[in-house]
């Protein structure tokens, strides 16, 4: 499901999305007395209450939104799993926008809180634009020519299914993937892993059988992680990262150390 939290020219997108109609909601960021964003939260509640419940919720925030506030609601709501902030930066304009005396700080803030930055219109942009964005964020930066971005990066890998431990470099793709199934994991070692994941790992998700007999699930998106207790029959985990930065072989060897 796509929600468009929209103001101004971006509304073109809402019109484009109307073909998807039932799964699109147009939102506002209006609030009576300040900027609490109550409308957006009510809409999030409406989305969760839909039956059948949407598998994924993609929220297109407004041009001056504070995505971290929307993200905070996803972190707080136990029935939602936070899947990251993707900040789309127009390479032709991002330099001017981030130095704008009025909205520069808000735009830079959107890059700063991103889990992933997608650069569009790179053919029109200044060659130094990646460097400029790099100074404003620690998030991985990918190019998204014509706005095309691998859904895997936005929605995350599907539930791990590959049997055994494996890894792949899908040539031509932006990302490299690692996955594993089976075995028992040490809870404390997993916690340490979540706090300091291997270089270049962008997303990780898995369900675990722990050596103390309990089970749980864990997620990493960018710099954030979550661990909670759930039922799980079998350990299964999957990780992805940008091809240039993430080495599935390294991930596999780290994974060995987590096994109990």
């Amino acid at each position: 499901m796509v929600m468009v939290n929209d103001f101004g020219e971006l509304n073109i997108d809402a019109e484009l999305l109307e073909s998807a109609d039932e799964d699109t909601m147009t939102l506002s960021n209006g609030c009576i007395c300040c900027t609490m964003g109550t409308e957006l939260l009510y809409a999030l509640g409406d989305a969760i209450d839909r039956r059948p419940r949407p598998d994924h919720l993609v929220i297109e925030a407004s041009g001056v939104a504070q995505p971290e506030k929307i993200a905070a609601a996803a972190h707080a709501e136990p029935e939602m799993q936070y899947a990251g902030v993707v900040t789309v930066a127009d390479a032709a304009n991002i330099g001017a926008l981030t130095s704008d005396p009025m909205i520069g700080a808000q735009i830079a803030g959107q890059l700063e809180v991103a889990d992933l930055v997608a650069l569009t219109k790179t053919d029109l942009g200044d060659a130094n634009v990646t460097g400029l964005v790099r100074r404003l964020t620690t998030a991985p930066i990918v190019e998204a020519p014509m706005g095309a971005l691998d859904p895997m990066l936005v929605l995350g890998p599907t539930s791990p299914q590959t049997p055994g431990t494996g890894h792949s470099h899908d040539h031509g793709a932006d990302y490299a993937q690692w996955s594993s199934k089976g075995g028992v994991v040490d809870r404390e070692a997993l916690k340490a892993f979540l706090i300091t994941p291997p270089k270049g790992l962008y997303r990780f998700k898995g369900v675990f059988r722990f050596s103390d007999g309990t089970s749980g699930e864990a997620h990493i998106v960018g710099a954030t992680h979550a661990l909670r207790t759930t039922e799980a029959d079998e350990t299964a985990a999957v990780a992805i990262g940008l091809s240039a930065e993430f080495d599935p072989a390294e991930m596999a060897s780290i994974w060995e150390t987590l096994s109990a």
Binding site: E39, L41, I70, A72, E77
Partner: peptide, 18 residues
């Protein structure tokens, strides 16, 4: 503190000023 943290509770107690 702040609406995001209140949101799961407000949703469950059904207080909706809108």
């Amino acid at each position: 503190q702040e609406l995001a943290a209140m949101f799961p509770l407000m949703r469950r107690i059904g207080v909706n000023f809108r």
